[in-house]
């Protein structure tokens, strides 16, 4: 059986908010190392890979592998009943028809319990190769969100270019063009504001802003975001969570005709 207790319901609420635009139904794969999820969007252009390590829960118990097939819209309806600060416990039997969610407020004078029906989801898992990315950029997640939003107003696509000058986000649309340059920045007192650029070779790739905008829905999960790029491979956008848990998005590049 599965029993996983989260100190703050906010984490699961934010995870579901972050992925439900991209994916409507997916398996939450539970095993003794934690709860994972891998799913592609319908067009097979973007993929979300999330893993909440067992250390992110207290306690965490999962005796055997359990796949919880969940409709994220339905899960979100149930999670709306949880306050951000509530303690959230997920429970399921070994071959479950439902997942049980319990929300307790901090003063333990309210306990809400919901059963969410599960579904059989036949999901293909893709092998994501380990990549030594040519460029890794860490920046405030709010900054990346703003860049994505601002450029979306001008164009459908952005070209992310990383060279020894720094990183640039450039786009061109009907009304004109835009370009945002970021340079390395270190703030010892506020490391969340740091911009870090590590590059082994110059990279330039073009991506659909629509998907980047979807990924940015995870901004509330982490103050920093990491973009990993190599020429001619999908972009990885990572939001690191506590206890080595993470939510990662992959996006296939666009190529010129």
């Amino acid at each position: 059986m599965l029993e996983a207790r989260l100190e703050q319901a906010a984490l699961l609420k934010k995870v579901v908010d972050a992925i439900k635009e991209l994916v409507q139904e997916c398996n939450f794969d539970c095993n003794d190392s934690g709860i994972g999820l891998q799913a592609m969007d319908n067009s097979h252009v973007a993929l979300v890979s999330m893993f909440l390590k067992s250390e992110s829960f207290s306690p965490f118990r999962c005796d055997r592998n359990i796949a919880l097939g969940i409709n994220l819209n339905a899960l979100q309806k149930v999670l709306r009943a949880a306050q951000n600060e509530d303690i959230l416990t997920l429970k399921a039997e070994d071959a479950p028809d439902v997942v049980n969610l319990v929300f307790e407020n901090a003063t333990a004078d309210r306990i809400s319990e919901y059963d969410l029906k599960l579904m059989d989801i036949d999901q293909e898992h893709l092998g994501i190769p380990d990549t030594d990315y040519a460029a890794q950029i860490s920046m405030p997640s709010s900054e990346f969100q703003r860049i994505t939003r601002d450029l979306s107003a001008i164009s459908e696509s952005v070209t992310i270019e990383c060279n020894k000058e720094g990183v640039s986000f450039a786009c061109e649309g009907d009304i004109g063009k835009g370009n945002i340059k970021l340079r390395q920045y270190t703030n010892v007192d506020k490391p969340a504001e740091n911009v870090e650029v590590n590059m082994t070779e110059p990279v330039a790739l073009t991506f659909a802003l629509k998907y980047l905008g979807n990924f940015c829905k995870a901004s509330g999960l982490s103050e920093q975001v990491r973009l990993c790029l190599s020429n001619e491979v999908p972009l990885m956008v990572e939001y690191a969570l506590a206890n080595n848990s993470y939510i990662r998005f992959y996006l296939a590049p666009k190529i010129g005709d």
């Binding site: 067009s43 252009v45 973007a46 993929l47 073009t206 999908p234 992959y250 190529i255 010129g256």
Partner: peptide, 14 residues
């Protein structure tokens, strides 16, 4: 004009 690629080209079945 540019063309959107899909992930299947890059990520295989494990």
């Amino acid at each position: 004009k540019s063309r959107q690629q899909t992930l299947g080209k890059f990520f295989g079945k494990p």
